[in-house]
Amino acid sequence: MIKKAKTFDFISETERLVIRPLKNEDYQNWLNEFKNRFPSQHRHDKGKIDMSECTEEWFHNLVKKHQTLALSDTAHIFGIFRKNDDIHLGMVDFSTLARDNFQWGRIGYMIHNQFWRKGYGKEAVKEALNIAFKDLNFHRIEAHINVDNAPSINLAESVGMEFECVRKGFIYEYEEWTDHMVYYINSK
């Protein structure tokens, strides 16, 4: 029997970061950093995003949705915050692909582009993988990465994920079925 972590009240810390679910009181901090994003740096960076429909009520519903997804073990979604000033740096999430004899999940990550090249992504993803194995009880985590997304590939490799294969026509995005590279890491 695999125990499920109650991630809606979970917190993990590294030297510089706090990784935890979003809370209602995070709204202004969360919104500010989305608004402070730089223009897009490459094809897979959304850059500045229209946040006009992201009202405080909308955000509170998002927090509830994240809690529901965590309770059902469908997805576990965490904010990444800088420890010294609680600034929202980005997000990391796990989707459960299969449990039972697999204990298999997928990781997604995003650091606001105004905080790139400071090591936050590597530090956050490394700690998130610890959370995945120790607290969420996954055995295998995969990252599905666009074949031309060099920054994401470099990040996956920097935390010890290994290239496994290219899945052809794997995800429908950019108005077409796109190939994705699969990187994986297993618990030790």
Rank of each mutant, 00 (worst) to 15 (best):
I77R: 12
V18K: 08
S158C: 14
K4I: 10
H44Y: 14
L136S: 12
K126Y: 06
E123V: 03
F34I: 15
I77L: 14
G169Y: 00
D85A: 06
T7V: 00
D135Q: 08
K35P: 01
D179I: 03
Y120E: 08
N24K: 10
N61S: 05
R43L: 08
K188D: 13
V182G: 02
L89M: 13
T7C: 05
G121T: 10
H139R: 14
A150H: 11
A5F: 09
E127W: 02
E56W: 10
F38W: 06
V159L: 07
D50A: 08
S40Q: 15
A128D: 01
E53N: 14
E13A: 01
W104E: 00
F10V: 07
L129M: 11
G160I: 12
F102H: 15
D50E: 11
I171T: 00
L62V: 13
E57M: 04
E176K: 14
A150T: 15
S12N: 07
D9F: 03
A150R: 12
F10L: 11
G90R: 01
T74F: 12
L71E: 08
N61E: 06
T74Q: 15
D86A: 04
E173D: 02
W116A: 01
F115T: 00
L71T: 09
E33S: 10
D26T: 09
E142S: 14
D85M: 05
A5M: 15
I19K: 04
S52K: 15
K122N: 09
I145R: 11
T68Q: 15
T96D: 04
A156Y: 03
W30G: 05
N130R: 14
L89A: 09
I87K: 15
E53G: 11
H144T: 00
A98V: 01
I19E: 03
S12E: 13
F138R: 02
Y172L: 02
L136D: 13
R167L: 11
K188E: 10
R82H: 08
F133E: 11
T178C: 09
F8H: 05
H139L: 11
C165E: 15
M51V: 15
N154K: 14
G169S: 03
K122V: 05
K188A: 11
M51R: 12
E157S: 10
R37C: 04
G108T: 13
W116T: 03
L22N: 01
W116H: 10
G47K: 13
I87G: 03
